[in-house]
Amino acid sequence: MLPICFEWHWDVGHFVFMGLFYTALTIIGAGVVYTFMATMKDLCSGKDPHEHGHH
């Protein structure tokens, strides 16, 4: 999982596999962080939480 593990090789397999894995994690993480920040912004702006209605 990390280059510090002894079975890690800097080869194509690891680049592709771990590359995609960390990309997916980064996207999910960024999405969640963005949501937190947007929520903070909404709260500070004093909007009415129910104006956006149902989904």
Binding site: G31, Y34, T35, A38, T39, D42, P49, H50, H52
Partner: peptide, 24 residues
């Protein structure tokens, strides 16, 4: 739960970028 403004905003914001999660 949706009466709590923090959580309601959070749910709404998650919904807005749901396409990102759906695509991933």
């Amino acid at each position: 739960i949706s009466k709590v403004p923090d959580l309601s905003f959070f749910a709404h914001n998650l919904h807005r970028i749901m396409i990102v999660f759906a695509a991933t």
